[in-house]
Design a protein around this nucleic acid. Sequence first.
DNA 1: GTCGTTAACTTGACTCATTCAAGTTAATCG
DNA 2: CGATTAACTTGAATGAGTCAAGTTAACGAC
Lengths: 149, 149
Amino acid sequence: MSREVTPIVQQLRARGMRVTAARSAVLEWLADYPHATVEQVHEGVSQRIGSLSKQAVYDVLNAFIDADLVQQIKPAGHPARFERRTGDNHHHLVCRSCGRIEDVDCSIGAKPCLTPNHDHGFDIDEAEVMYWGVCKACQTAPVTSDDDH
Amino acid sequence: MSREVTPIVQQLRARGMRVTAARSAVLEWLADYPHATVEQVHEGVSQRIGSLSKQAVYDVLNAFIDADLVQQIKPAGHPARFERRTGDNHHHLVCRSCGRIEDVDCSIGAKPCLTPNHDHGFDIDEAEVMYWGVCKACQTAPVTSDDDH
DNA sequence: GTCGTTAACTTGACTCATTCAAGTTAATCG
DNA sequence: CGATTAACTTGAATGAGTCAAGTTAACGAC
């Protein structure tokens, strides 16, 4: 087994973070499955590396969020989702029925990509746009619940 | 005490909803305090009408949401908030530190006020815009938590 | 290589907002 | 002035996430 240094290892080292099986596996998993829930990351990664506590998944994801390697999406009424695409202020399209999420590029530009006509004295740093609708599958299918992706 | 029919009573009757002290008081309260949480509505209304279970607050608010008399806002990481302004697709400005919310008129127009450049086959019915920042009070004040309004 | 430090992980209890369920009360219609 | 049933009360249950104490293992120093 050659001991090559993968880009993931580099990304972690560059931020002074220890490299562990859990962390590498979570980053890899998110590359394959963007918009995954904690539940999904936990299942997938546990299988890949044998086992991992759910708490560890929370820890790893939070560490990544702090390190700007991962971004969190919290659609109202659905568990949080995680993705590796950070810093480009793109938006999301959420299915009301199954929770499925798709990326939507920001049509305007850099962040904050929209400026409110009245800032009420706030120091605004983000304009979060969430499109809500019903995905193709749920438009035709009978009644599905939060399984998705 | 004259028994005049208030607009609130009319609004309820018009929708075939029974008129109760709880319902009238919640609608009144929300007129005075837009963006209130369940907690706040519960405290305020309990005082006004003597007492009311928290569950009733949930029931009343949900009935109003179904009847389109009230709208719900769910900022990530904060409890839900309720307001009487419905149907005009205006947006919200949320303070990251105290959760305070301000209304922001939609600068574009009717709902959905923004159209994504790619609908991914979804049947989109809403573009929810949430501006995030730090309110004036929290910019200067030391560390506050979810008290607000 | 091995040792020590401490970040990362495990386990399990706990919180908070919200929902579910069963029983009681009271608004409205006849 | 009842009867019907929507609205309310009480209390248990849920789901997502956090907190806290103890154990393990990365990795820098020797």
